[in-house]
């Protein structure tokens, strides 16, 4: 449903020097710098797939969504969404996509949600019966109450976000771009929106591309992720594989019985892996996956162990390291 080939976007930005003299000089001559927002991205997204687009601020996630939804033109490269070139903005394309931006209101602030939806029905030419059916289903999925007749500007952020979701999905788009849909929301609303997205996917199987800074969103919604760093894709694959590939270690956490047996020594234990924590009662070691059994066995034999657990590293930490350009673990 989405096919992207070497997509690139370079922005030309006016360089602003500080100070009054520079401002006056800029009236006559300006310096421009080129900022590569997206650098040759290639990927595809299938029907019913939710792909998480992850990256630090400025990594190019939103720019990518803007190009794929047809808002901006790329500098070079190709993209096809539902067989159309997005930035040509054919009506047949625009009636089948939706872009939801958590940070930007897209509804009419002065109107109640009910009026906004009626207007959208007219814009998308949704037949009356389909409109009623879709609206009813979305309202019940998002548990909307009496807020339908309240002006958008008077709704809470969570309520507004729910209305934005309804507005974007009223015409049953086959491709949905979600740009930080849970940003700034409380935990309950975040969960409600995540559940809604999953339910919506189960019912209609659209292709979805989601950006979020919340790992909870990514872990709950996406089986596949694309990690962007400075405009380039540095990882495209399953969420599980990212750990195996970029975190070739596991964490052993050992609780020791106080005052019984040998006292752990960090320098000595470093033979087994990276010692994250070492005290009289607790030891935490990151050991290579192929030596995890050996390390656990040695700890059990040398110390009076009250409890031992072996865990995968936090996925968020791993992704954060990849985004920051330090994917490799010390060992």
């Amino acid at each position: 449903m989405i096919k992207v080939q070497n997509l690139r976007k370079v922005f030309r930005v006016h360089k602003r020097e500080p100070g009054l003299t520079s401002s006056i000089r800029a009236l006559f001559r300006r310096e421009w710098i080129e900022k590569v927002a997206v650098s040759g991205s290639t990927f595809s997204v299938a029907e019913g797939e939710i792909v998480g687009l992850i990256g630090a601020n400025g990594a190019g996630k939103t720019t990518l969504l803007k190009m794929l939804s047809g808002i901006i033109h790329p500098t070079s490269g190709e993209a096809r969404v539902l067989g159309s070139i997005p930035w040509k903005r054919e009506n047949s394309f625009r009636t089948q996509i939706a872009l939801i931006m958590g940070q930007k209101a897209q509804l009419w602030w002065d109107l109640p949600a009910a009026d906004c939806f009626l207007l959208l029905r007219e814009i998308y030419r949704i037949p009356e019966d389909r409109y009623r059916k879709n609206l009813g289903r979305l309202i019940s999925m998002l548990n909307i109450g009496n807020e339908m007749n309240v002006q958008i500007r008077r709704l809470s952020l969570g309520e507004r976000m729910k209305m934005e979701l309804i507005a974007a999905l009223l015409h049953s788009p086959r491709v949905v771009f979600l740009d930080e849909p849970t940003i700034g929301l409380d935990l309950t609303t975040q969960r409600a929106i995540r559940d809604f997205i999953l339910e919506y996917r189960a019912e209609l199987s659209p292709a979805m591309l989601l950006t979020s800074h919340y790992m909870e969103d990514i872990q709950r919604l996406c089986k596949r992720i694309i990690i962007l760093r400075e405009g380039s894709i540095v990882y495209d694959g399953s969420l599980r594989r990212v750990i195996e590939e970029y975190a070739p270690y596991k964490e052993i956490l050992v609780h020791l019985r106080r005052g019984i047996g040998a006292v752990p020594d960090a320098e000595d234990l470093s033979r087994l892996g990276d010692v994250v924590e070492c005290s009289e009662t607790q030891v935490k070691i990151r050991a290579p996956r192929d030596r995890i059994a050996e390390a656990a066995n040695e700890l059990l034999q040398r110390f009076s162990v009250a409890d031992l657990s072996i865990d995968e590293p936090e996925i968020g930490d791993t992704i954060e390291r990849i985004m920051a350009g330090r994917p490799e673990e010390p060992r």
């Binding site: 939804s69 808002i71 903005r89 009506n91 009636t95 931006m101 930007k104 897209q106 814009i123």
Partner: peptide, 12 residues
């Protein structure tokens, strides 16, 4: 303000 974006998404 970037409000043009939403109008570009509409099929009109």
């Amino acid at each position: 303000e970037g409000s043009l974006s939403r109008f570009l998404l509409y099929p009109s």
